[in-house]
Design a protein around this nucleic acid. Structure first.
Lengths: 333, 333
DNA sequence: GCCCGGATGTGTATCGTTACAAATCGCTTC
DNA sequence: GAAGCGATTTGTAACGATACACATCCGGGC
């Protein structure tokens, strides 16, 4: 495969001139440029990215680490991040951290970050145990729940307030026996604990006694888990009339699970999710949910990271909490 | 940031020995290895991937190009491809070709392929116009509809047979006024034309007169488009009693659109999709669909590519067509 | 005719790693 | 005690590109 040297020889110029053409430096005569471009075309030359990266010390690539690429929320967020980054001339590589969160995450941070100029870490499940990972020297933006004391930029979703609003929405629609379907990491700082807090706060504020029997903890936040949770709730005879779900993906499973049991949504039970994934719009019934403003999340994540890459002198880690709105649809109609 | 040289100095060995330790070469004494590993740890050394790639001439990375990362079918396929490739020690970078298919595709093939040892191209929308792109020297596997004469490995979905079976399934359930909701590229070789052919073949075989009014062409294969198509069909008074959808994502939109019009599925109209995405299992009603065996697709794609990377001497491009099965669910019950 | 400055173009010296071949070590064997 | 032979370790020389500083060209101003 042709190298920059070959092109230079073919065009009768020095390698540097070819490089200058490639990098759109000024001070290359139009005629020379043409000659070089023609040689590039003739030889089918492609720049060797590895060599460029090595010499330049940058890759123009940012990593975006998510637990699972095939969970709609992350896939849709990834699409937005890619778009924003592209506008700024950066490529995005999606990293899958997988179920085995602890190991995978450390693998990424410790061995792959050199491939990226910076990293956006969608940190569902990130705990204080991972804090030391964050002291790495790669510019990083954490995207997810709060991790205190971490010396990195951080974009938090409106976890507690959003779930509070979702629960209030159910209460306002007349629900009194409101279940919460959440993750199993309620005891440490996590998406689950934050969203649970919002749920509890709403109940308490309206004088509704929280019933532990109405809280279902899931090992994984999948639709299948949601479906099984719905079965559990429907079969328990607990008189549930509303369900707050930790994510839309879970909520769609819950709706399905209620259908399995012949429970009508929203007639018998109202359901609300969190994330406003695309699918929430097309389910039957369509899903009421919390829209955390994905566009803002993606924009902020990319902007913060790029700002960090551009300069470093007086940078201070910041925490941003994005806005949200309740999107009322049929599932709570 | 520490380099391999720094580690070598700290451990009192030559750079090559450090390299040997890193690459798990045999013939490194256990004691030496320990000393090197300690130095690596002390210095927080991380291998510079760019330098390694440059020297080694390989990246151990394969690209996976899809139109949209956030369409469930692609996201789910990507997850599988990542898993299979990981087993073989390869990383996967997902490339988004986007809506502007022609330009983006060429951009990827022409300027980014040097970053990958090989490329898997999920080629919805790839046409004969793109054929010359495929003559590139990067090992490639095409995944999608048939593109004849292309000198690359190719994995075809059972497009025609699958849709034939889907249509037959509807006919067997009593449907006679069967609509097809498809893409707008029916005139050239494409997913649409192949699946359309399967639909037509089934109708003709059962002596059902194809009605052009029952064919809806979509500009994009999204749920929203499907929803609007369903409105169109419901409002047309065409007496539709079955809908064959080109993808599950479209089908879910169709089900939603029918619900908008108060049409019952499967009572009034039966709906069948194609892909068996996860969401098909959780919709209400759950979606009957064609399962093209994603696991086989992913496995085959990775295996073919890796085989191509391993050796080249007597390689011949091959076309594989994967199997499929009809997954009957509620939407045709 | 000579100097000057911007516009163009070109050496040189790496970036950090690994392939390759050659050197060295330690121990057995005769 | 010397030769022989793996096991271990180490120089050397790139991989292909770019930063930097320097060389050259050209026309205008005096």
């Amino acid at each position: 495969m042709a190298t920059l040297h070959d092109v230079a020889k073919a065009a009768g110029v020095s390698p540097m001139t070819v490089s200058n053409v490639l990098n759109k430096h000024p001070h290359v005569r139009a005629e020379t440029r043409e000659r070089v471009l023609k040689a590039i075309d003739d030889l089918g030359y492609r720049v060797n990215v590895a060599a460029r990266n090595l010499r330049a010390g940058r890759t123009n690539t940012i990593g975006f680490a998510v637990p699972e690429v095939d969970r709609p929320y992350f896939a849709q967020l990834a699409a937005r991040v890619i778009a924003k980054a592209q506008d700024a001339g950066y490529r995005v590589v999606i990293e899958q951290t997988g179920a085995d969160r602890e190991n995978e995450l450390s693998a990424i941070v410790s061995s792959r970050t050199r491939m990226y100029d910076g990293l956006i870490l969608s940190a569902v499940g990130l705990g204080t145990a991972d804090r030391d990972l964050l002291t790495t020297d790669v510019p990083m933006v954490i995207l997810g729940e709060s991790v205190f004391d971490s010396p990195v930029d951080h974009i938090a979703l409106p976890n507690e307030d959003g779930t509070y609003a979702a629960t209030m929405h159910l209460i306002d629609r007349g629900c009194r026996r409101i279940a919460m379907v959440e993750g199993d990491d309620v005891s440490r700082l996590s998406v689950t604990s934050l969203r649970h807090a919002g749920y509890r706060r709403a109940l308490e504020e309206r004088g509704i006694e929280p019933d532990p029997a109405l809280v279902v903890e899931l090992r994984e936040l999948s639709s299948e888990s949601g479906r099984l949770a719905a079965h559990e709730l429907a079969d328990s005879g607990g008189g549930v009339d509303g369900v707050v779900c930790i994510t839309d993906t879970v909520a769609l499973g819950v709706i399905r699970g209620l259908a399995d049991r012949g429970v009508s949504v929203p007639g018998d039970v109202k359901v609300v999710g969190f994330d406003d994934i695309l699918e929430a719009r097309y389910s039957v019934p369509s899903l009421t949910t919390i829209d955390p403003d994905h566009d803002e999340v993606a924009r902020l994540a990319v902007d913060l990271l790029l700002a960090r890459l551009a300069d470093a002198p007086d940078w201070q880690p910041r925490e941003h909490v994005t806005g949200f709105r309740v999107v009322a649809r049929e599932s709570t109609g």
